[in-house]
C-alpha cells in the first residue's frame, strides 16, 4: 500500500506551500492521477483521512481528477488512447507505444481559506 507514502508526500507538498504563501486552512486538495499512474484512486481516498489527521490537511476534501492515458505509436506516429500498457496501436497494430500522458500523479491545486 504505497499510497500511504504517496499521501504523506502530498501533505508535505501542502505544508511546503503554506510556508511559501501562508493560508489558514485547506478546503480542497486536487490531484491529477493518470489512468496508468502510480496509485489507485480508491486507495488514496482510503488512506487520506488517516494520514491527514493532525496535519494541515485535516478536514480537507480530496478531489482526484483522473487523466486518460494516451500513447504515441513510434511506427505510424499517431496518438490514441491507451487502456492498458500492452495495448497495440489501434491504427497499425505496432506492439509498442510510448505513453505521453496518463502516467502522472500530481498535486494540481489547492483551495484554501
Amino acid at each position: 500500500m504505497h499510497e500511504v507514502s504517496l499521501m504523506e508526500n502530498i501533505i508535505a507538498l501542502v505544508e511546503d506551500q503554506r510556508r511559501l504563501a501562508p493560508f489558514g486552512r485547506v478546503r480542497v486538495i486536487r490531484l491529477q492521477l493518470g489512468a496508468l499512474g502510480p496509485a489507485e484512486p480508491d486507495c488514496l481516498r482510503f488512506c487520506f483521512d488517516a494520514v491527514a489527521r493532525g496535519t494541515i490537511a485535516e478536514g480537507a476534501r480530496l478531489d482526484i481528477v483522473m487523466v486518460a492515458a494516451q500513447a504515441r505509436c513510434p511506427a505510424c506516429q499517431r496518438i490514441a488512447r491507451m487502456e492498458d500498457r500492452f495495448d497495440a496501436c489501434p491504427f497499425c497494430a505496432h506492439p509498442e507505444r510510448h505513453m505521453i500522458i496518463g502516467g502522472e500523479l500530481r498535486l494540481a491545486e489547492l483551495e484554501v481559506a
Binding site: I10, L13, A21, F23, L105, R106, L110, E111
Partner: peptide, 17 residues
C-alpha cells in the same frame, strides 16, 4: 489569510523521491 482562493501547484508527488 482569510480570503478563499485556489492555488495552482502542479507538482509531481514523487518529485522528492
Amino acid at each position: 489569510l482569510s480570503q478563499a482562493r485556489t492555488i495552482r501547484i502542479e507538482r509531481d508527488i514523487l518529485e522528492k523521491n
